[in-house]
């Protein structure tokens, strides 16, 4: 029992929580934005992979880290455009299009990576984001060490969560997005163009997803390898439901999830006799449990997964 308490009381754990949460925050916010406008974006897993690859590649070829993050966001936006064209303009099944985008984006990442970076014994690396400590906070007990272990994209993720919450519930734009996700016909009657709103939400949301992927290669690690996203995208999709489509709760959900993940990582080394795979399974099982607990209570955007065609019901 005391080992468990020791783990929870360590600043290292909480530093890791923020680090593990960052890609999930980006991804969950991105998926949430898409779904609030009525489009399920299962392209997330592939878009995160492509973000991780393209951001890393840009930095590897001499761009600075922020440019790398921007490159990833633009690449994500491009895949968002593809998904929007398929699901908004053509009104195809959002499930199938999303899976198509995931398969395409991830295989294209592997192809381009292998083409540009030939197979080597040890993968080439870049110099990732360094932790920065915010002036004034570094001296605080406990919070100081936790925050000074963080890199700038983590702060960006936290700010984005606040920004998205503000835009979604305090601005006309947010109202238009939510209306489009609830009832696009009513939105159009109010002078909102549902097609444009959906395009915008999917493109921006996909850019956020790709930034989450880029965090993995530009901050958490320093190299790219296939399958590095490891289902994080799918976990984000589950987190959106857990968060009941609210940015604040999405932030909380991502942090809670990261807490369990960081905790199980440390428990692995502290507990003997249990296969490590049992610990690795917990994040996925936890996501499923969270979905079951929240699915009934969650307020699903009413027009989610429904294509909108003008003049058709």
């Amino acid at each position: 029992m005391s080992t468990v308490l020791d783990i929870i009381a360590s600043a290292g754990l909480w530093g890791a929580v923020l680090r593990i949460a960052t890609p999930l925050i980006f991804g969950t916010l991105g998926a949430l934005l898409c779904e609030r406008a009525g489009v399920l974006n299962l392209g997330i897993e592939g878009i995160m992979t492509f973000g991780a690859m393209s951001g890393w590649l840009a930095v590897y070829h001499g761009a600075d880290l922020w440019t790398g993050l921007l490159v990833a966001a633009l690449a994500g936006a491009a895949f968002g455009l593809l998904h929007a064209a398929l699901t908004v303009t053509l009104g195809l099944s959002q499930h199938v299009s999303g899976l198509g985008v995931t398969l395409f984006a991830s295989s294209l990442s592997y192809y381009l990576f292998r083409l540009i970076v030939p197979l080597a014994g040890s993968p080439p690396t870049i110099v990732p984001f360094a932790p920065v400590s915010l002036p004034g906070l570094a001296g605080l007990p406990f919070i100081g060490p936790v925050l000074s272990a963080q890199t700038p994209p983590t702060y960006l993720a936290l700010l984005l969560a606040l920004l998205l919450a503000y835009v979604m519930f305090r601005t006309p734009l947010g109202l238009a997005i939510r209306m489009t996700g609830e009832n696009p016909h009513a939105a159009e009657a109010q002078g909102v163009n549902p097609m444009a709103v959906r395009y915008g939400a999917v493109i921006v949301g996909s850019a956020l997803m790709a930034m989450g992927g880029a965090f993995l290669t530009l901050s958490a690690f320093n190299s790219f390898f296939p399958t590095m996203v490891q289902g994080r995208g799918w976990i984000c999709i589950a987190l959106v439901v857990f968060a009941s489509w609210r940015p604040g709760r999405a932030l909380f959900g991502a942090l809670l999830f990261a807490f369990f993940d960081a905790f199980q990582l440390r428990l692995q080394t502290a507990v003997d006799g249990v296969p490590y795979q049992v610990f690795l399974m917990t994040p996925y099982i936890l996501s499923i449990v969270a979905l079951c607990v929240m699915a009934r209570r969650a307020r699903v955007p009413q027009a989610l997964m429904q294509p909108y065609r003008r003049g058709e019901r």
Binding site: L42, H95, Q230, G231, W234, I235, I237, A238, V241, P275, Q277, V278, L280, M281, Y284, I285, S287, I288, L291, C292, A295, R296
Partner: peptide, 25 residues
């Protein structure tokens, strides 16, 4: 529980591979 089976069946893929990994280890 009216949980979308897309996400749950996807997440179970990772669980299944880990079960296999555990058994063959």
């Amino acid at each position: 529980f009216s949980v979308d089976e897309v996400v749950t069946s996807l997440l179970l893929n990772f669980v299944a591979v880990l079960v296999v990994s555990m058994l063959i280890d």
